[in-house]
């Protein structure tokens, strides 16, 4: 409160009457309209209080006359997006791969949907970016057991490999060791030969016996040049990329008691359109044919 209005001796102006440690403040009055602007902003604020959610009431707040809620706004946005995506996904399910690839917007939606679906479903085995790991094939390389075209990938995802689906991709590698089709010594010989295919031949090792055994036992599926056979999912062995590792011990183990991976059929979990989207995404990882 102003205590003593007086005139300042030097400037001859009024003081506000405020005094702090002997320092007095000159009165430089503010124009009234300026104050009215302040008042107007307060009136404006009152309007906001009435129209919008404002006063906290413990666990909730007043809702305001407009019934505005940022959550509802966000949800409306989501719904709008979902509706848009629903039509776009329908389109993806309807048209051919070639048509999707020609349509930039559709392709973008497909790749995004594919990426998210992949992260939720495929990543545990194939790795976050399809790089694979021992026993689970990499999807970003040019080695494919069952084919790397869009149609082949779509087929694999839909029906799975050695899954319960009647249309699953199916094949069996003979149990050469367990069923005594080959003796342990023969298996060692085959392994020596296979190591030459892997590009890891030990110098001075005679592989002619192994090569002969390979021709008789393995070539029917893996091919005479060990180039693999996609009809039966037999991987190429003349390669640098190997599902179960490239050590000699791994080769011996595989011939003796073959491991054969299982991939679930996704047709009972994902819609055909989503599977197409995943196929497009996997195809884009770098290995697509």
């Amino acid at each position: 409160m102003p205590t003593k209005i007086e005139k300042d001796v030097i400037s001859g102006r009024d003081t506000t009457g405020h005094e702090w440690d002997g320092i007095r403040e000159l009165n430089t009055p503010l124009p009234k309209w300026w104050v009215y602007v302040y008042l107007a902003t307060i009136v404006w604020a009152l309007g906001m209080f009435v129209l919008y959610p404002a006063i906290p009431l413990g666990t909730r707040a007043t809702t305001g006359l407009l019934g505005f809620s940022s959550r509802a706004q966000a949800m409306a946005g989501f719904q709008e997006m979902n509706a848009l995506h629903a039509t776009q996904m329908q389109e993806i399910g309807r048209v051919s791969f070639a048509d999707i690839e020609k349509n930039h917007d559709l392709m973008e939606v497909a790749l995004t949907a594919g990426r998210i679906t992949f992260a939720n479903n495929c990543q545990p085995c194939h790795g976050p970016n399809g790089e694979g790991r021992i026993g689970y094939p990499a999807l970003d390389t040019d080695v494919w057991r069952w084919g790397g075209s869009l149609d082949a990938i779509q087929q694999t995802i839909t029906h799975g490999i050695r899954s319960a689906d009647p249309d699953a991709r199916n094949s069996q590698m003979p149990n050469f060791g367990g069923d005594k089709l080959l003796t342990p010594a023969q298996i060692e010989d085959v392994a020596d030969y296979v190591m030459t295919l892997y590009g890891k031949a030990k110098p001075g090792v005679d592989t002619s016996a192994g090569e002969k055994l390979f021709g008789d036992n393995c070539a029917p599926c893996h091919g005479a040049k060990a180039e693999g056979n996609r009809d039966v999912g037999a991987p190429p062995l003349a390669s640098r990329v190997h599902l179960y590792g490239d050590s000699r011990a791994a080769v011996v183990a595989q011939i003796t008691h073959p491991r054969m991976g299982v991939m679930p059929n996704w047709n009972h979990r994902l819609s055909p359109a989503t599977i197409k989207a995943v196929a497009l995404y996997v195809h884009s990882l770098g290995g697509g044919e």
Partner: peptide, 12 residues
């Protein structure tokens, strides 16, 4: 790419 750093190919 952050991961995988590279992909191996059939021909090495």
């Amino acid at each position: 790419d952050r991961a995988p750093l590279y992909a191996l190919l059939e021909d090495g």
